[in-house]
Design a protein around this nucleic acid. Structure first.
Lengths: 205, 205, 205, 205
DNA sequence: AATGAATGAGCGTTCATTCAT
DNA sequence: AATGAATGAACGCTCATTCAT
């Protein structure tokens, strides 16, 4: 009996995302999907023609839903370290919130990096998506530093692009440590890491 | 027919490492191992009681063989940016060389991160090993910055630990980008990234 | 959106026939049928209650459309080897033409025997149909030989029924070889085989 | 626990042959094979790497075991219709007996043609094997007719090759009818058909 | 020390079929 | 008349593992 649910597709995507994040692509079987979606194998195949197609769809769904919002005129807002921090953390918090909202009340044992790297290694097409995402995030940071520069909040003569890139990589490295070590409470841990990293960054430059 | 190889164990470890790095833990089957070692399933089980045990052994084998050598008195050697760079690159080059030597003439299509993260997610015990490793690398960097400080090669008043940690994370982030994008020629790419990152770092501080 | 095709049923039959001939009953799935008819699964089930029913319908459709036409007074026409050959080949050509017309311009990679035998082994009811068909063809041949006999075109004392049956079996065996070896251009090949077989037959009797 | 049976391979081949003959390649599943061999899926895959490989192996096994024996000097033996018939039937009986022996006491519901045609349509490589087989059988028949000719037991001036080919095709056609109509007792039916066909053949030439 | 026969659970995928709309 | 969501069993095949030899 076909259910009236129009959200079967969303149900599949969401459940699959959750499972992929928790256990990794390879470790999630259709049996798992059946169990957690409440659908039959056939129904899932009705919406996604293969596990591979499901991977891509889930990945795009995740990025779509959690893409960092770009501020329109960052240089009007970012004047000093304090406003930099505030805006950055606000952006990330928003991202995390939309992520948590996306997940609903479903419990989430995160092992995000595994999923990311698996996804990439299984599917070349996803690599490009991630490269774009990383450029996007770098651009945002550059906007922030441009603001700081306009307000003379950073030492003269520093290369804005270099600063942005350096901080971006530090943040990436920091994220790695967090995800390495922390499976639960990662939301708090990662926000604290962002704060510490930015604070440290302003100390060393 | 017993093989002449006395080092059956080493053969298994090496072959497995290569396969894990290339395809990831989950994607390597005993069938693959049999094919590439020239041994039988039984023989592999004779040396390693499970695929899990093999994973740990291989991981330790890898870290053992490529651990960054700690200089005895870094502050005597590291006097300025130039000597910093030289020593750091020398250490990493040594690491990579011992890695390549380890692999012998076997071709290596790297997908290293996948293996690392898979290993970690499959096996809690490996996480601790990696944490130790990361502390070790951080300590080395701190030694370098202490040397720089002794020779007044960095601005006064900068926190040495902070500098080391910041650079460490930047390097980690940099490694990620390289491994994301580059599957072949990663040796060159990663050395260049190290050089660029260190150069940039000295520009921004 | 309802298709303009009024002859949905004919569309299904034709497409299915083509697919069955090309790939065999077992290798044709509803997915294939959907793809090639442009209809939905439900629509096909609306016309044929099961794949089995579809098989029978298609089989009957095929036989109906390609049944060899019986000449009214063969003994008036068939006077000698030449007229025998002419009439026989004309009949077969007609059959093949109506078959090709039936298939329209759809390309047809023939593997006809597989389909026939599959059909029979899947469905007892079809066996009887084929037996009837074979009797029909035998009767036609007997009519031809009766004509020859009336015109003293065959050696005296030969049993007409025996001659007809013998030739019929030879032709059957010949068809088998053709279908074994030839997937494309079977129309030409089979006509040539008919000609050779009849010529040979007149040589040996 | 590995059994001592050295005949696991033979067991698989025999059981599979029986099932293929009875139900056809497509209709035999590994589940069936497991059930009838008493082995596990894995064990069967240990011996044959795929269902396709199994098909070829079974096919070769069948032909090997039932190939018609070639008489050394047929023209010394075949002198007239009677000796022709005797030798031919003896050869076929031998073939059938070795086939029945091969099958052991296992009950056999024959649907042989389906299997043959399926095998061929699934696997190009098998087609060639069958062509060779058919040439072999034709050669044997030609030897017989040469014998007849030497003893002036056939009308003068008849082309020996033509006679052999014609009879061969008649026999092929005859086999088809038998297999079409008869599933049980096919051994008797086919021998009777051979006898009738040969008798008829000598009547019409 | 090393083999390879054998297991059985599980994999991703396809199947014919049902039925509310 | 026609759709397409949904089912659940079955498919061929691979897996890590065991163990008698």
């Amino acid at each position: 009996m076909p259910k009236i649910t129009q959200d079967t597709r969303a149900n599949i995507l969401l459940t699959t995302l959750q499972l992929f994040l928790e256990k990794g692509y390879k470790n999630v079987s259709y049996q798992d999907l059946v169990k957690h979606t409440g659908l039959s194998k056939g129904a899932i195949y009705h919406y996604f023609e293969s596990k591979d197609a499901l991977l891509i769809a889930v990945f795009e769904f995740l990025l779509e839903a959690t893409k960092e919002p770009e501020n329109e005129k960052p240089h009007e807002i970012v004047k000093d370290q304090e406003s930099f921090m505030k805006l950055f953390i606000a952006g990330k918090t928003k991202q995390i919130d939309s992520f948590k909202k996306l997940m609903g009340n479903k419990p989430l044992k995160l092992n995000r990096l595994l999923f990311f790297f698996e996804a990439i290694s299984e599917n070349q097409q996803l690599k490009q998506i991630l490269v774009e995402l990383s450029k996007h995030e770098l651009t945002i940071l550059e906007g922030y530093f441009a603001g700081l520069n306009m307000h003379h909040a950073i030492p003269k003569g520093k290369d804005i692009h270099l600063l942005a890139e350096s901080l971006y990589w530090m943040l990436q490295g920091g994220e790695m440590s967090v995800f390495f070590l922390q499976e639960d409470d990662w939301e708090d841990a990662i926000i604290k890491m962002y704060q510490k990293t930015i604070t440290d960054f302003f100390k060393i430059i």
